[in-house]
Design a protein around this nucleic acid. Structure first.
Lengths: 240, 240
DNA sequence: TAACATTAATGGTATAGACAACTATATTTC
DNA sequence: GAAATATAGTTGTCTATACCATTAATGTTA
C-alpha cells in the first residue's frame, strides 16, 4: 500500500490513502483512525512521517485531532450559515420566513455622487436605481435602495421585484459575484423610512451598506438598506 | 529571546518572534530569512522545531519557501482590513484613533443566564464579568460587557483595562482564539448606556454581540457592546 | 457505593542526525 | 571565452527516540 521506492513522498502516499478511505466511505465521520503509533508500525515508517500526513489533513479540516483521545474523521463541513454574501431572499429563507418585495421605484439614471464613488465610476455613467420594500411573511422588514452599474450587469428587467437579483445575474447573465464589503451602523428612522417600514419616526434602524464585486474586482452593486431595529438582527460567522 | 522553560512551546515562540519582526518592519517583503540551520544554531534548538514554526507561517502565507534557495517574507496580502476578528483596540488603531478604556466593573461571578447560554456552560460556572467604557481619542465610543469563561482563560489581572484582552490571552496564556460569531442590531440607548456614553437616552446605538471560540470550538468569551450610533460604523469584508 | 489513585494509550513537543533534491556560485576543462 | 564540473548552501523528507499533557479505563480504598 505504501511504496518506499516511489518518487512520491511517503507522507503524501499516506495522506492520499487516508483521503481515499474517507471518500469511499470505508471510514466515516466520527470514526477513530488507527493511532499514530499503530500506523507507523503497520507501514514501518517513523511516527513523525505519519504525523506529517495527518497534520496536513487536520489543517484542511478533514481530520480532527484530540489530545489523549485520538484522531477522528471530521464531520463534513456544515455550511457557514450567513458566512459570505447572502441576498435578502436567501437570508429570510434561512430564517424560515417567506421573503417578499414591493417595488417602489425602478429607473435608469446617471449615478448620484455617493453611488458613483462606491462603484468607482464617473457620475455620468448610467446605473439602475431600484427602491424596494423588503417583506418577511408580508411584514415590512427593510427599505432598500440598489444601484447597479449597467455597463457591468447589462439590462435588468423590471420584474426583479420577486426574484433575487443575485441569482438573476448569475443564472441569466453569467456574472459572477465573488465578495463584498459591508458597513453596519445604527440610526433613527427618517420620515421616508418610517413610512415605508410602518414604524414610528425616530425608531431604531440598522443601516447596512454593501458593495459587491465581480471576480476581477470591479464594483458591481451598491446597496443601502434600512432594517427595522426591532425585528432584524444580523448574524455573521467569521472564520479567522 | 527564546525561553525554553516557558509553558509556551518553543516553535510557537519562534513563530511569534518571526511574526513580530515582520510586523515591526525589521524584516520586509522579499527579505530572506536566516536559513533553518542558522536559526536552529542561534537558538540552540533542533532544526525540526524551527521547521514547525516556519511551516505554519508558510501555510498562512506569511512566509514563502523555495527549495534550494531559502525562505522569504511574503508580499503582504492584498487587504482584508477588518476581515476576521478584531479587538476594539486593533479596530481603533486601524482607524487612526487612540484607543482607551475605563474600567467600570471587574468581578468573578457565576454566569448569568444569557452568558451561560452563549458560553455553553452551567449557570454555576465562574466567569469574569468586565464592564468597560471604550474610548477613542478620549471620547466614549462603546459600552462593553465581557464575560469570559474562567475555566478556559485562567486568571485575568484587573489591569486589563488598557490592554487588549486578546493579545493578553494569546501572549501570556497561550490561548488561541480562532473564530467568532457576531450579531448586529440597532437599538436606542437605555439609561445606563446613555450615561456611560454621554449621549441622550433614546439616541441610536449599535448593539454588537460576539462569541469567540478556541481552536477546539469551545466558547471562550461573550461580549455585549453598545456603540454610539452617531460615531461608529462597522465595516467588514467578506471573501466568498 | 463512591471517591480516589494507578495505569495505559493517545496526541503534542522536541532532539540529533541523515540523505535527497535543488540552486547558485566557483572552479576546472576544453 | 564557453561549457562542463565540482562545491557549498538551501529546503524537503525521513528516522528513531524521548518525554510531556490529557484522557479514559481500571483498580483500590474508604
Amino acid at each position: 500500500m505504501i511504496d518506499k521506492n516511489s518518487p512520491l513522498p511517503i507522507y503524501y502516499q499516506i495522506q492520499e490513502m487516508i483521503r481515499k478511505k474517507i471518500e469511499t466511505g470505508e471510514w466515516n465521520p466520527g470514526d477513530m483512525l488507527p493511532s499514530e503509533r499503530i500506523f507507523s508500525e503497520d507501514f514501518d515508517v517513523s511516527r513523525m512521517t505519519v504525523r506529517q500526513a495527518v497534520t496536513e489533513l487536520a489543517n484542511e479540516g478533514v481530520l480532527m485531532r484530540e489530545k489523549g483521545k485520538g484522531t477522528f474523521v471530521a464531520e463534513p463541513k456544515i455550511e457557514q450559515p450567513l458566512q459570505g454574501l447572502t441576498s435578502f431572499t436567501e437570508d429570510m429563507k434561512a430564517r424560515g420566513l417567506e421573503p417578499g418585495s414591493t417595488l417602489i421605484q425602478y429607473q435608469l439614471r446617471t449615478a448620484p455622487r455617493k453611488a458613483a464613488e462606491a462603484l468607482q465610476i464617473k457620475p455620468e455613467t448610467k446605473v439602475y436605481e431600484i427602491k424596494r420594500v423588503r417583506l418577511a411573511d408580508d411584514v415590512p422588514m427593510a427599505y432598500e435602495t440598489t444601484f447597479i452599474n449597467r455597463e457591468l450587469a447589462g439590462d435588468i428587467p423590471e420584474d426583479v421585484e420577486n426574484r433575487s437579483i443575485y441569482s438573476f445575474l448569475e443564472q441569466e447573465k453569467g456574472v459572477k459575484i465573488v465578495d463584498g464589503e459591508q458597513t453596519f451602523e445604527a440610526s433613527l428612522a427618517n420620515t421616508e423610512e418610517a413610512e415605508r417600514l410602518a414604524i414610528e419616526e425616530g425608531a431604531p434602524v440598522l443601516l447596512i451598506q454593501r458593495i459587491t464585486y465581480l471576480e476581477d474586482g470591479s464594483p458591481l452593486e451598491y446597496v443601502k438598506s434600512a432594517y427595522r431595529g426591532d425585528r432584524y438582527k444580523f448574524t455573521i460567522n467569521m472564520p479567522r
